[in-house]
Amino acid sequence: MTSVATGIARKKKISLSELLLRISMFLVIGVITYWLGFNLVIDPRAFLQVSINGINNGLLYALIALGYTLVYGIIELINFAHGDLFMLCSVFSFAILTELFGAKAPGAKNFALLLVVLLLTMIFGAIVNVTIERVAYRRLRNAPKLAPLITAVGMSFVLQWIGLKWVGSVPVNVNTVLPATKYQFAGLEVAFKTFVIFAVTIPILILFVFIVNKTRRGRAMRATAQDKDASRLMGINVNQTISFTFAIAGAAAGAAGIMWAQTIGTVSYNLGFQLGLIAFTSAVLGGVGNLYGAVLGGLIVGLIQAYNDGLTVGPGQRWSQTMVFTILILLMVYRPGGLLGQSSQEKV
Protein backbone atom coordinates (compact mmCIF):
# COMPACT_ATOMS: atom_id res chain seq x y z
CA MET A 1 0.00 0.00 0.00
CA THR A 2 2.69 2.48 0.92
CA SER A 3 4.45 2.12 -2.40
CA VAL A 4 1.22 2.77 -4.24
CA ALA A 5 0.60 5.87 -2.17
CA THR A 6 4.04 7.35 -2.78
CA GLY A 7 3.74 6.48 -6.45
CA ILE A 8 0.68 8.66 -6.74
CA ALA A 9 2.29 11.43 -4.73
CA ARG A 10 5.31 11.41 -7.01
CA LYS A 11 3.18 11.73 -10.10
CA LYS A 12 1.38 14.76 -8.77
CA LYS A 13 4.48 16.70 -7.83
CA ILE A 14 7.39 16.85 -10.22
CA SER A 15 10.56 18.03 -8.57
CA LEU A 16 12.57 20.89 -9.98
CA SER A 17 15.46 18.69 -11.12
CA GLU A 18 13.08 16.41 -12.97
CA LEU A 19 11.49 19.39 -14.64
CA LEU A 20 14.88 20.73 -15.73
CA LEU A 21 15.79 17.28 -17.01
CA ARG A 22 12.67 17.20 -19.13
CA ILE A 23 13.12 20.70 -20.47
CA SER A 24 16.73 19.95 -21.37
CA MET A 25 15.63 16.75 -23.11
CA PHE A 26 13.21 18.66 -25.32
CA LEU A 27 15.91 21.23 -26.00
CA VAL A 28 18.36 18.54 -27.13
CA ILE A 29 15.75 16.85 -29.30
CA GLY A 30 14.79 20.25 -30.70
CA VAL A 31 18.36 21.18 -31.60
CA ILE A 32 19.01 17.85 -33.31
CA THR A 33 15.73 17.98 -35.21
CA TYR A 34 16.45 21.54 -36.30
CA TRP A 35 19.93 20.61 -37.46
CA LEU A 36 18.69 17.62 -39.46
CA GLY A 37 15.71 19.53 -40.83
CA PHE A 38 17.89 22.44 -41.86
CA ASN A 39 20.20 20.14 -43.80
CA LEU A 40 17.28 18.35 -45.39
CA VAL A 41 15.89 21.63 -46.64
CA ILE A 42 19.09 23.18 -47.98
CA ASP A 43 20.23 20.04 -49.78
CA PRO A 44 17.76 17.15 -49.74
CA ARG A 45 19.79 15.03 -52.15
CA ALA A 46 22.94 15.20 -50.04
CA PHE A 47 20.86 14.41 -46.97
CA LEU A 48 19.43 11.23 -48.49
CA GLN A 49 22.84 10.26 -49.83
CA VAL A 50 24.34 10.59 -46.37
CA SER A 51 21.41 8.64 -44.92
CA ILE A 52 22.11 5.73 -47.24
CA ASN A 53 25.75 5.68 -46.19
CA GLY A 54 24.65 5.79 -42.58
CA ILE A 55 22.32 2.84 -42.96
CA ASN A 56 25.07 0.98 -44.78
CA ASN A 57 27.41 1.27 -41.79
CA GLY A 58 24.56 0.96 -39.34
CA LEU A 59 23.67 -2.50 -40.62
CA LEU A 60 27.22 -3.66 -39.93
CA TYR A 61 27.09 -2.18 -36.44
CA ALA A 62 23.74 -3.89 -35.94
CA LEU A 63 25.25 -7.29 -36.74
CA ILE A 64 27.98 -6.80 -34.15
CA ALA A 65 25.62 -5.23 -31.63
CA LEU A 66 23.40 -8.30 -31.95
CA GLY A 67 26.25 -10.37 -30.51
CA TYR A 68 26.64 -8.09 -27.51
CA THR A 69 22.95 -8.08 -26.82
CA LEU A 70 22.43 -11.84 -27.25
CA VAL A 71 25.24 -12.69 -24.87
CA TYR A 72 24.23 -10.02 -22.38
CA GLY A 73 20.65 -11.20 -22.57
CA ILE A 74 21.49 -14.76 -21.67
CA ILE A 75 24.32 -14.56 -19.13
CA GLU A 76 24.37 -10.85 -18.26
CA LEU A 77 27.95 -10.50 -19.38
CA ILE A 78 29.24 -7.58 -21.42
CA ASN A 79 31.44 -9.63 -23.70
CA PHE A 80 34.30 -7.21 -24.27
CA ALA A 81 35.97 -9.73 -26.54
CA HIS A 82 33.16 -9.50 -29.05
CA GLY A 83 34.62 -6.61 -31.03
CA ASP A 84 37.89 -8.50 -31.30
CA LEU A 85 36.05 -11.58 -32.45
CA PHE A 86 34.66 -9.41 -35.25
CA MET A 87 38.24 -8.31 -36.04
CA LEU A 88 39.46 -11.89 -36.06
CA CYS A 89 36.64 -12.84 -38.44
CA SER A 90 37.58 -10.04 -40.82
CA VAL A 91 41.20 -11.24 -40.73
CA PHE A 92 40.08 -14.83 -41.28
CA SER A 93 38.00 -13.86 -44.31
CA PHE A 94 40.98 -11.93 -45.70
CA ALA A 95 43.29 -14.90 -45.16
CA ILE A 96 40.92 -17.37 -46.81
CA LEU A 97 39.27 -15.38 -49.59
CA THR A 98 42.05 -13.02 -50.60
CA GLU A 99 45.18 -14.97 -49.80
CA LEU A 100 44.23 -18.62 -49.97
CA PHE A 101 41.65 -18.51 -52.77
CA GLY A 102 43.35 -15.54 -54.46
CA ALA A 103 40.05 -13.77 -55.08
CA LYS A 104 41.37 -10.25 -55.52
CA ALA A 105 39.24 -8.76 -58.29
CA PRO A 106 35.57 -8.58 -59.19
CA GLY A 107 34.13 -11.46 -61.20
CA ALA A 108 31.42 -14.07 -61.15
CA LYS A 109 33.69 -16.83 -59.84
CA ASN A 110 35.11 -14.64 -57.09
CA PHE A 111 31.65 -13.50 -56.14
CA ALA A 112 30.62 -17.11 -55.69
CA LEU A 113 33.74 -17.64 -53.59
CA LEU A 114 32.73 -14.65 -51.49
CA LEU A 115 29.47 -16.37 -50.60
CA VAL A 116 31.31 -19.57 -49.70
CA VAL A 117 33.78 -17.68 -47.51
CA LEU A 118 30.92 -15.73 -45.95
CA LEU A 119 29.54 -19.03 -44.77
CA LEU A 120 32.98 -20.22 -43.65
CA THR A 121 33.62 -17.00 -41.73
CA MET A 122 30.29 -17.29 -39.97
CA ILE A 123 31.14 -20.85 -38.96
CA PHE A 124 34.59 -19.70 -37.87
CA GLY A 125 33.08 -16.92 -35.74
CA ALA A 126 30.61 -19.35 -34.19
CA ILE A 127 33.30 -21.89 -33.33
CA VAL A 128 35.67 -19.32 -31.82
CA ASN A 129 32.90 -17.75 -29.76
CA VAL A 130 31.62 -21.08 -28.46
CA THR A 131 35.18 -22.03 -27.56
CA ILE A 132 35.69 -18.76 -25.69
CA GLU A 133 32.57 -19.39 -23.64
CA ARG A 134 33.56 -22.98 -22.98
CA VAL A 135 37.13 -22.21 -21.97
CA ALA A 136 36.82 -18.88 -20.21
CA TYR A 137 33.29 -17.92 -19.18
CA ARG A 138 31.53 -21.15 -18.30
CA ARG A 139 33.47 -21.93 -15.16
CA LEU A 140 32.87 -18.40 -13.93
CA ARG A 141 29.13 -18.52 -14.35
CA ASN A 142 28.46 -18.54 -10.63
CA ALA A 143 31.36 -16.25 -9.75
CA PRO A 144 30.82 -12.58 -8.84
CA LYS A 145 29.99 -10.51 -11.94
CA LEU A 146 33.37 -8.76 -12.01
CA ALA A 147 35.28 -12.01 -12.62
CA PRO A 148 33.77 -12.87 -16.04
CA LEU A 149 33.90 -9.19 -16.98
CA ILE A 150 37.64 -8.98 -16.39
CA THR A 151 38.03 -12.32 -18.14
CA ALA A 152 36.26 -10.87 -21.15
CA VAL A 153 38.69 -7.96 -21.19
CA GLY A 154 41.54 -10.45 -21.00
CA MET A 155 40.02 -12.50 -23.79
CA SER A 156 39.85 -9.33 -25.87
CA PHE A 157 43.65 -8.96 -25.52
CA VAL A 158 44.17 -12.61 -26.40
CA LEU A 159 42.20 -12.21 -29.62
CA GLN A 160 44.01 -8.97 -30.46
CA TRP A 161 47.33 -10.73 -30.00
CA ILE A 162 46.23 -13.52 -32.35
CA GLY A 163 45.19 -10.88 -34.89
CA LEU A 164 48.52 -9.09 -34.46
CA LYS A 165 50.48 -12.27 -35.12
CA TRP A 166 48.23 -13.10 -38.08
CA VAL A 167 48.33 -9.86 -40.10
CA GLY A 168 51.01 -7.81 -38.38
CA SER A 169 50.77 -4.42 -36.76
CA VAL A 170 50.10 -2.35 -39.89
CA PRO A 171 46.61 -2.19 -41.43
CA VAL A 172 46.45 -4.40 -44.53
CA ASN A 173 44.60 -3.40 -47.67
CA VAL A 174 42.11 -5.95 -48.94
CA ASN A 175 41.60 -6.26 -52.67
CA THR A 176 37.87 -6.54 -52.65
CA VAL A 177 35.95 -8.81 -55.01
CA LEU A 178 33.07 -6.34 -55.06
CA PRO A 179 33.06 -4.05 -58.11
CA ALA A 180 33.24 -0.31 -57.51
CA THR A 181 30.17 0.21 -59.71
CA LYS A 182 27.73 2.90 -58.68
CA TYR A 183 24.10 3.12 -59.66
CA GLN A 184 22.03 6.26 -60.06
CA PHE A 185 18.55 6.40 -58.54
CA ALA A 186 16.63 9.63 -58.79
CA GLY A 187 19.85 11.58 -58.52
CA LEU A 188 21.17 9.43 -55.68
CA GLU A 189 24.32 7.42 -56.00
CA VAL A 190 24.22 3.95 -54.52
CA ALA A 191 27.33 1.80 -54.60
CA PHE A 192 27.09 -1.86 -55.56
CA LYS A 193 28.76 -2.61 -52.20
CA THR A 194 25.86 -1.04 -50.39
CA PHE A 195 23.46 -3.40 -52.14
CA VAL A 196 25.61 -6.34 -51.11
CA ILE A 197 25.61 -5.16 -47.50
CA PHE A 198 21.82 -4.83 -47.59
CA ALA A 199 21.43 -8.22 -49.27
CA VAL A 200 23.64 -9.97 -46.73
CA THR A 201 22.94 -8.25 -43.43
CA ILE A 202 19.18 -7.80 -43.62
CA PRO A 203 18.37 -11.49 -44.19
CA ILE A 204 20.85 -12.49 -41.49
CA LEU A 205 19.29 -10.05 -39.02
CA ILE A 206 15.82 -11.32 -39.88
CA LEU A 207 16.95 -14.93 -39.62
CA PHE A 208 18.49 -14.46 -36.19
CA VAL A 209 15.55 -12.51 -34.83
CA PHE A 210 13.32 -15.26 -36.20
CA ILE A 211 15.41 -17.97 -34.53
CA VAL A 212 15.22 -16.23 -31.17
CA ASN A 213 11.54 -15.35 -31.31
CA LYS A 214 9.89 -18.20 -33.17
CA THR A 215 11.83 -21.43 -32.86
CA ARG A 216 12.00 -23.99 -30.09
CA ARG A 217 15.70 -23.27 -29.61
CA GLY A 218 14.96 -19.58 -29.40
CA ARG A 219 12.30 -20.18 -26.79
CA ALA A 220 14.83 -22.15 -24.78
CA MET A 221 17.22 -19.20 -25.12
CA ARG A 222 14.68 -16.73 -23.84
CA ALA A 223 13.70 -19.03 -20.99
CA THR A 224 17.35 -19.50 -20.03
CA ALA A 225 17.82 -15.75 -20.09
CA GLN A 226 15.00 -15.31 -17.60
CA ASP A 227 15.55 -18.14 -15.15
CA LYS A 228 18.21 -20.82 -15.51
CA ASP A 229 17.00 -23.17 -12.78
CA ALA A 230 13.40 -23.01 -13.95
CA SER A 231 14.66 -23.73 -17.48
CA ARG A 232 16.43 -26.85 -16.23
CA LEU A 233 13.16 -27.95 -14.66
CA MET A 234 11.55 -27.65 -18.11
CA GLY A 235 14.13 -30.04 -19.48
CA ILE A 236 16.20 -27.40 -21.22
CA ASN A 237 19.91 -28.14 -21.50
CA VAL A 238 21.13 -24.80 -20.22
CA ASN A 239 24.81 -25.20 -21.13
CA GLN A 240 23.93 -26.22 -24.65
CA THR A 241 21.53 -23.31 -24.98
CA ILE A 242 24.21 -20.85 -23.87
CA SER A 243 26.67 -22.38 -26.34
CA PHE A 244 24.07 -22.00 -29.09
CA THR A 245 23.65 -18.33 -28.18
CA PHE A 246 27.39 -17.76 -28.43
CA ALA A 247 27.36 -19.57 -31.77
CA ILE A 248 24.71 -17.23 -33.19
CA ALA A 249 26.52 -14.18 -31.81
CA GLY A 250 29.78 -15.42 -33.32
CA ALA A 251 28.18 -16.11 -36.69
CA ALA A 252 26.78 -12.57 -36.78
CA ALA A 253 30.24 -11.19 -35.98
CA GLY A 254 31.62 -13.40 -38.77
CA ALA A 255 29.20 -11.97 -41.31
CA ALA A 256 30.02 -8.45 -40.17
CA GLY A 257 33.74 -9.21 -40.33
CA ILE A 258 33.82 -10.35 -43.94
CA MET A 259 31.47 -7.59 -45.03
CA TRP A 260 33.73 -5.03 -43.37
CA ALA A 261 36.86 -6.43 -45.02
CA GLN A 262 35.19 -6.43 -48.43
CA THR A 263 33.47 -3.06 -48.31
CA ILE A 264 35.82 -0.90 -46.26
CA GLY A 265 38.85 -2.62 -47.70
CA THR A 266 41.26 -2.84 -44.76
CA VAL A 267 41.82 -5.24 -41.92
CA SER A 268 43.86 -4.50 -38.85
CA TYR A 269 44.52 -6.17 -35.51
CA ASN A 270 43.08 -3.25 -33.54
CA LEU A 271 39.90 -2.90 -35.55
CA GLY A 272 37.94 -4.71 -32.86
CA PHE A 273 38.51 -2.12 -30.21
CA GLN A 274 36.88 0.78 -32.00
CA LEU A 275 34.17 -1.17 -33.76
CA GLY A 276 33.45 -3.12 -30.60
CA LEU A 277 32.99 0.12 -28.71
CA ILE A 278 30.65 1.49 -31.36
CA ALA A 279 28.64 -1.71 -31.56
CA PHE A 280 28.47 -1.89 -27.79
CA THR A 281 27.20 1.68 -27.78
CA SER A 282 24.57 0.65 -30.32
CA ALA A 283 23.45 -2.23 -28.13
CA VAL A 284 23.19 -0.01 -25.06
CA LEU A 285 21.46 2.71 -27.05
CA GLY A 286 18.77 0.30 -28.17
CA GLY A 287 18.45 -1.33 -24.76
CA VAL A 288 20.94 -4.08 -24.10
CA GLY A 289 19.33 -7.50 -24.12
CA ASN A 290 16.74 -6.47 -26.69
CA LEU A 291 17.30 -7.78 -30.23
CA TYR A 292 15.31 -5.11 -32.04
CA GLY A 293 17.07 -2.60 -29.83
CA ALA A 294 20.46 -3.76 -31.12
CA VAL A 295 19.36 -3.37 -34.73
CA LEU A 296 17.75 0.00 -34.07
CA GLY A 297 20.77 1.16 -32.05
CA GLY A 298 23.16 0.09 -34.80
CA LEU A 299 21.20 1.99 -37.42
CA ILE A 300 20.96 5.09 -35.25
CA VAL A 301 24.68 5.13 -34.49
CA GLY A 302 25.44 4.59 -38.19
CA LEU A 303 23.16 7.50 -39.08
CA ILE A 304 24.53 9.79 -36.38
CA GLN A 305 28.05 9.19 -37.64
CA ALA A 306 27.08 9.68 -41.26
CA TYR A 307 25.13 12.89 -40.57
CA ASN A 308 27.94 14.22 -38.45
CA ASP A 309 30.61 13.43 -41.02
CA GLY A 310 28.78 14.08 -44.24
CA LEU A 311 26.12 16.77 -43.88
CA THR A 312 26.74 20.14 -45.51
CA VAL A 313 26.32 21.94 -42.22
CA GLY A 314 27.66 19.83 -39.39
CA PRO A 315 30.51 19.31 -36.96
CA GLY A 316 32.57 17.25 -39.41
CA GLN A 317 34.48 14.02 -39.27
CA ARG A 318 36.84 14.76 -36.42
CA TRP A 319 33.85 15.06 -34.08
CA SER A 320 32.48 11.70 -35.15
CA GLN A 321 33.29 9.69 -32.00
CA THR A 322 32.51 12.61 -29.72
CA MET A 323 29.07 12.87 -31.28
CA VAL A 324 28.28 9.18 -30.94
CA PHE A 325 29.26 9.00 -27.30
CA THR A 326 27.63 12.30 -26.43
CA ILE A 327 24.37 10.96 -27.78
CA LEU A 328 24.90 7.80 -25.75
CA ILE A 329 25.54 9.76 -22.56
CA LEU A 330 22.47 11.93 -23.16
CA LEU A 331 20.33 8.90 -23.78
CA MET A 332 21.58 7.26 -20.61
CA VAL A 333 20.58 10.39 -18.71
CA TYR A 334 17.06 10.48 -20.14
CA ARG A 335 16.38 6.80 -20.71
CA PRO A 336 18.78 4.63 -18.69
CA GLY A 337 17.20 1.42 -20.02
CA GLY A 338 17.91 2.28 -23.65
CA LEU A 339 15.36 3.04 -26.35
CA LEU A 340 13.61 -0.32 -26.26
CA GLY A 341 14.91 -1.48 -22.89
CA GLN A 342 12.80 -3.06 -20.20
CA SER A 343 11.56 -0.36 -17.93
CA SER A 344 8.35 -1.87 -16.59
CA GLN A 345 8.37 -3.56 -13.21
CA GLU A 346 7.46 -7.20 -12.95
CA LYS A 347 5.50 -8.78 -10.16
CA VAL A 348 7.51 -11.16 -8.08
Binding site: A220, A223, A230, L233, G235, E346, K347
Partner: peptide, 29 residues
Amino acid sequence: VAKGICHSPEGRRIFPRMSVDENLDLGAY
Protein backbone atom coordinates in the same frame (compact mmCIF):
# COMPACT_ATOMS: atom_id res chain seq x y z
CA VAL B 1 12.83 -34.21 -16.59
CA ALA B 2 13.09 -36.63 -19.50
CA LYS B 3 12.70 -39.54 -17.04
CA GLY B 4 9.28 -38.20 -16.02
CA ILE B 5 9.87 -36.01 -12.98
CA CYS B 6 8.38 -32.52 -13.26
CA HIS B 7 8.87 -29.91 -10.60
CA SER B 8 6.72 -26.93 -9.76
CA PRO B 9 9.31 -24.98 -7.80
CA GLU B 10 9.15 -22.83 -4.70
CA GLY B 11 8.30 -19.22 -5.55
CA ARG B 12 6.61 -20.42 -8.76
CA ARG B 13 9.52 -19.38 -11.00
CA ILE B 14 7.35 -18.87 -14.06
CA PHE B 15 8.94 -17.00 -16.97
CA PRO B 16 7.61 -13.50 -16.30
CA ARG B 17 8.35 -11.92 -19.69
CA MET B 18 6.63 -14.70 -21.62
CA SER B 19 2.96 -15.25 -22.22
CA VAL B 20 0.99 -17.89 -20.36
CA ASP B 21 0.86 -19.79 -23.62
CA GLU B 22 4.64 -19.84 -24.02
CA ASN B 23 5.13 -20.84 -20.40
CA LEU B 24 2.89 -23.85 -20.95
CA ASP B 25 4.71 -24.72 -24.16
CA LEU B 26 7.99 -24.66 -22.26
CA GLY B 27 6.55 -27.17 -19.82
CA ALA B 28 6.29 -29.57 -22.75
CA TYR B 29 9.74 -28.64 -24.05
